[in-house]
């Protein structure tokens, strides 16, 4: 996640200092990916260096400096919203790697690996759903509930993928030729 673009987008609303930016970022995303203030100020320094933000007036009584967008910064925010987010290459996915190794490592009970993950992901999905049940439909909850639902849909996709893996592993096992029974039709209905 680019903190850069997150902060630029927040500055589109008007000048803000670092603490405000952090609070507004956390409010929109339900503190799902909390920022620390150090990260915020480091990023603001870089944005200033790149000419995308400038300091807005003198420090306030607490010594906090507000920043505002430059024209270049505004162009950058627009471009960010318009362009799709693309994952750069396939990020290393521990679960996919684990399953790939499980099906190729002798003696591993692949179905048990799948089920353990399914239970774990379902538990996660239940927790997310509990949070969602508490979120109201008020307008200020919209941003946060959309973030929550993105996590919900991802967990659901993982469970569907696990179901798919399981079906393929079972099918592959049933196709493996049993010794000395070549030509016999595959037994059906053993999965009931």
């Amino acid at each position: 996640m680019s903190i850069r673009h997150g902060l630029l987008a927040l500055l589109e609303r008007g000048p803000r200092h670092g603490y405000q930016l952090r609070a507004e970022f956390d409010a929109a995303t339900g503190s799902t990916w909390p920022l620390n203030v150090g990260q915020v100020y480091t990023t603001l320094d870089r944005l200033e260096r790149d000419g995308l933000v400038v300091q807005d007036g003198a420090p306030d009584a607490d010594g906090r400096i507000a920043y505002r967008l430059t024209d270049d910064g505004r162009v950058e925010v627009g471009a960010w919203f318009r362009s799709p987010v693309t994952a750069k290459g396939a990020p290393r996915d521990e679960l996919a790697i684990k399953l790939a190794l499980a099906v190729t490592t002798p003696g591993v009970d692949v179905l048990a690996v799948v089920q353990a993950q399914r239970t774990g992901t379902m538990r996660q999905l239940q927790e997310l759903t509990r949070l969602k049940a508490r979120a109201h439909d008020a307008p200020d909850e919209l941003a946060w509930s959309l973030v929550l639902e993105s996590l919900v849909f991802r967990a659901e996709a993982e469970i569907r993928w696990l179901d798919h893996c399981e079906a393929r592993v079972v099918r592959a096992a049933s196709r493996r030729p049993a010794p000395a029974v070549t030509g016999a039709p595959a037994r059906q209905g053993s999965r009931r």
Binding site: S31, T32, R118, T119, Q124, Q126, E127, L128, R134
Partner: peptide, 21 residues
């Protein structure tokens, strides 16, 4: 019954603290 996912331990463990809401 091959498995069950019971009430999750620590409902908020996924997101950082109950500050989520």
């Amino acid at each position: 019954v091959v498995d069950q996912s019971g009430p999750g331990a620590g409902a908020e463990s996924l997101l950082t603290g109950d500050g989520a809401r």
